[in-house]
Measured scan of single mutants.
Amino acid sequence: TGEEYIAVGDFTAQQVGDLTFKKGEILLVIEKKPDGWWIAKDAKGNEGLVPRTYLEPYS
């Protein structure tokens, strides 16, 4: 389980392990790392690192 967040901007993977997403996408945050990069999963089940500055809590 995780917390749902909504993307407030588009993000394109910079390196292997990053997750590309579009503004408005709902992501499930699995782990919040202290460096500001969180592990998240998208609706298709893809998992990767995302920058927390692009996310806001979804309710």
Rank of each mutant, 00 (worst) to 15 (best):
E4S: 14
L55N: 00
I39A: 06
D35Q: 05
A40T: 03
L49T: 13
Q14F: 10
A43F: 10
G17T: 09
G9V: 12
K41W: 08
T20V: 04
G17K: 05
S59F: 10
L27D: 00
V8H: 06
L27V: 07
K41G: 03
G17R: 06
Y5L: 02
L55F: 04
I26L: 09
P57M: 07
I6D: 01
K33L: 11
V16D: 13
F11C: 04
D10H: 07
Q14K: 13
G9M: 15
D42P: 02
E25H: 09
G2E: 09
E31K: 11
I30V: 10
P34Y: 12
D35P: 02
V50Y: 01
Y58N: 07
Q15W: 09
K44A: 14
E25S: 11
T20F: 04
K32M: 08
R52P: 15
V8K: 09
G45Y: 04
I39E: 03
E3S: 12
K23V: 08
F11M: 04
L49G: 07
E47I: 12
A43D: 13
Y58A: 09
P57N: 06
Y58E: 04
I26W: 06
K32D: 03
A13W: 04
F21Q: 00
E47L: 15
G36M: 07
A43I: 11
L28A: 05
E56Q: 13
A40D: 00
N46G: 08
L49Y: 14
K22T: 09
V50W: 00
W37H: 06
Q15H: 12
F21D: 00
I30T: 08
E31S: 13
D18Q: 15
W38L: 03
A40C: 08
F11W: 12
A7R: 00
K23E: 07
P51N: 13
V50M: 02
G2I: 13
G2L: 13
D42G: 04
D18M: 15
K41T: 06
K33N: 11
K44S: 13
P34R: 06
V8E: 03
D35A: 06
E31C: 09
D18Y: 15
A40Q: 00
K22M: 08
K32Q: 07
G2H: 12
D35Y: 07
P34W: 10
G45E: 05
G2D: 08
L55T: 01
W38T: 01
R52A: 15
F11R: 08
I30D: 02
L27T: 01
L49S: 13
V29R: 01
Y58T: 07
T1S: 13
R52T: 08
E4D: 06
A7Y: 02
K44F: 13
Y5A: 02
N46H: 09
K41S: 07
A43W: 13
V8L: 15
V29F: 02
I6T: 05
E56H: 13
V8S: 07
W37P: 03
T12C: 07
T53V: 14
V16N: 11
G2Q: 11
W37E: 04
Q15K: 15
L27P: 00
A40N: 00
L28M: 12
K22H: 11
Q15S: 14
I30P: 01
E56N: 07
A13F: 03
L19S: 01
I26V: 10
G9P: 00
L27A: 01
I30S: 05
D42E: 02
D18W: 15
K33R: 14
L28I: 11
Y54F: 11
W37C: 05
L55W: 01
S59L: 10
Q15P: 03
K23A: 09
G48D: 00
A13S: 11
G48A: 02
K44N: 11
I30F: 12
E4V: 14
P34E: 15
A7V: 03
E31P: 01
E47A: 09
F21R: 00
S59W: 11
P57R: 08
G45H: 05
K22V: 09
V29A: 02
E4R: 14
Y5T: 01
V50E: 00
E25I: 03
L55D: 00
G45R: 04
K32G: 02
D18E: 15
S59V: 12
P57H: 07
K22R: 12
G36V: 04
V50I: 05
P57Q: 08
A13K: 06
E3M: 12
Q15A: 12
A43L: 11
T12N: 12
Q14H: 10
V50R: 00
I39V: 11
D35F: 07
T53D: 14
I30K: 07
S59C: 13
E56Y: 10
R52V: 09
G2T: 10
G48V: 02
T12S: 13
G48L: 02
W38C: 03
V29E: 00
T1C: 09
I39C: 06
Q14Y: 10
G45D: 06
G45T: 02
E31Q: 11
T53I: 13
Y54Q: 09
Q15D: 12
P51S: 09
T1Q: 14
K44I: 10
N46C: 09
G17A: 06
G17V: 04
K33Y: 09
